[in-house]
Simulated scan of single mutants.
Amino acid sequence: MKIAFIINDHKTEKPNYTTPALGYAAYKRGHEVYFIGVGELAYASRGHLSVRCKSVKDKKFNSQETYFKAVQNQEFSTITSEDLEVLFLRNNPADEINERDWAQNAAFIFGEIAMRNGVIVLNHPKSLAGAVNKMYFQHFPEILRPKTIVTRDHLEIKEFFKEQKQKMILKPLQGSGGTNVFMMDKKNEHNLTQTIDAICRDGFVIAQEYLTEATKGDTRLFLMNGEPLQVNGKYAMMQRVNASGDIRSNIHAGGKPQPVKITDQIMKLADIVRPKLVQDGMFLVGIDIVGDKLMEINVFSPGGLNVIGEMYEEDFATPVIESIEKKVYYKSMYTDYLLNSKLATL
Rank of each mutant, 00 (worst) to 15 (best):
K171Q: 07
G254N: 05
D202S: 09
S127G: 02
G178V: 03
S249Q: 05
L284Q: 00
Y27N: 08
I289V: 15
E142Q: 13
V260H: 10
Y67H: 08
T193V: 12
I321L: 00
Y235A: 15
C53M: 12
G111F: 00
G175N: 04
R274T: 14
G111W: 04
A4D: 15
M333Q: 13
R201S: 05
N242M: 08
M238C: 13
L211Y: 03
F68S: 08
T318V: 10
N298V: 01
T263R: 14
V328R: 03
M282C: 07
L170F: 07
T318H: 02
L346E: 01
Y210R: 06
T212D: 08
C200S: 09
R145N: 13
E325M: 07
K171T: 11
K158G: 09
M295R: 08
Q138N: 04
A236G: 13
K147D: 13
L155P: 05
I113H: 00
I324L: 00
K158Y: 11
E13Q: 12
E142F: 08
P228V: 14
N225W: 08
K59L: 12
F137R: 02
D95G: 11
H190V: 11
G47N: 06
G245N: 14
K342L: 02
P259Q: 10
M237Q: 14
N133C: 04
F160T: 08
K268C: 07
Y67N: 11
E65M: 11
P93Y: 00
L284F: 15
E209P: 08
K134D: 03
E213D: 13
E96V: 03
F161N: 11
M168Y: 07
M333D: 01
R29N: 14
L84E: 01
F76R: 11
L338T: 05
Y43T: 06
